[in-house]
Simulated assay, not measured.
Amino acid sequence: MPNLDSGAATWLTDVRTSYDTVAGSYAELMRDSLDADPYIRMVLASFAELVRAAGGGPVADVGCGPGHVTRQLGGLGLDAFGVDLSPGMIEVARRAHPHLRFEVGSMTDLVLRDGSVTGLIAWWSLIHVPDDEVPAVFQQFRRVLRPGGPLLLGFHVGDGFRLKTQGYGGHPMRVRVHRRRPGRVAEWLREAGFTVRAEMVLAPEETVPGAVLFASRR
């Protein structure tokens, strides 16, 4: 594995700079991606049902990127808003979805009041967070969620990480892409005060499958 400085300031800066650089190309790639994936749409619809069952209210899409998932959640009737570390991504999201709210922010220190959201989704946005930072991020998620509020996570399945130096139109990047076993993520969630409700593996025959975990705040 590459020998990289894992300090918070370093990895956060790398992620922010990398996604500012690729924001336009990434948005174009993801624009219609949900239209072609009925399984992802099913997962998001299930999450929307859980939010409604919890009484409805604001839903945070943390690490929202260009806002395509935020848009989908809004189309399902949720009061969804997006938060992303990259100002470039937020600019793209605001331009593409002017009827929705998007704010620059970090999942390591969410500028949201305690218990202020009914639901929270982190859709393939934890993949750049170092292992030793994930428990603190989950504590942030628990803090801002109302008791009983649903949490939905999506991530790559596997072990270790790779260093991504180029992507999305050939632009330079410098980010670690982590792969994790669902059981490990579930254990972090339980330790942070969540109850794990369901687990799914997406594209299990692919080289790098995806995993989805549904949890709720205790």
Score class of each variant (00 low, 15 high):
R190H: 11
R218H: 13
G148H: 07
V83C: 10
M42G: 10
E191V: 14
V15H: 00
L145F: 11
L213K: 01
F141N: 03
Q140V: 05
L145I: 06
V157E: 13
S25V: 10
G105W: 05
V134Q: 10
A27I: 04
L213C: 07
V22K: 00
T108V: 12
L163C: 07
L151P: 01
S46I: 05
E103L: 13
V43R: 04
H156C: 06
A96V: 07
D61I: 05
S106K: 04
H128R: 08
G105N: 06
G105P: 01
G160M: 11
L34A: 06
G158E: 10
R184Q: 14
V137S: 00
S46A: 14
G24Y: 04
A198P: 02
A45T: 15
F81G: 01
V62N: 00
V144D: 06
H99S: 15
G149Y: 07
L152C: 11
V196F: 14
T195N: 13
D61H: 04
L12W: 07
R179Q: 14
G167M: 09
H68Y: 10
G56P: 03
E49M: 13
E187I: 07
S6H: 13
P150L: 11
P38H: 10
L4N: 01
G183F: 09
V51H: 05
L152M: 14
G88L: 08
G149A: 11
V212R: 02
Y39N: 09
A186H: 09
D109K: 13
P182W: 06
L120I: 07
G154V: 09
L73C: 06
E187V: 12
W11R: 00
P66E: 06
L145S: 03
R95S: 15
G57W: 03
Q166V: 14
W123P: 00
F102L: 10
V201D: 07
G56M: 07
P172D: 06
D5A: 10
D114F: 06
R94E: 14
A203N: 13
T17M: 04
H178T: 03
T21I: 01
V144N: 04
L76M: 13
M107K: 01
D61R: 00
D35S: 12
F138R: 02
I90H: 02
L145G: 03
G24F: 07
V22G: 00
M1R: 09
E103D: 15
G193F: 10
L76V: 12
F161H: 08
T21V: 04
S25N: 13
R174G: 00
H128G: 06
T13D: 15
R16L: 04
G67D: 05
A23M: 04
A54V: 09
E199I: 07
L189T: 02
V15I: 13
R52M: 12
G67A: 09
M200Q: 12
C64W: 02
A203I: 11
G169S: 12
A48N: 02
G82K: 03
L126A: 05
P209I: 07
P135T: 03
A8T: 14
V208L: 09
R41C: 13
D37V: 08
R71T: 04
S46R: 13
R217E: 12
P98S: 09
Q139L: 15
Q72M: 14
V62L: 11
D159M: 11
F155Y: 13
M30Q: 08
G160I: 09
A23D: 05
D114M: 06
R162L: 13
V59P: 00
P150C: 11
V157G: 05
F214M: 08
H171W: 04
A93W: 01
A136C: 02
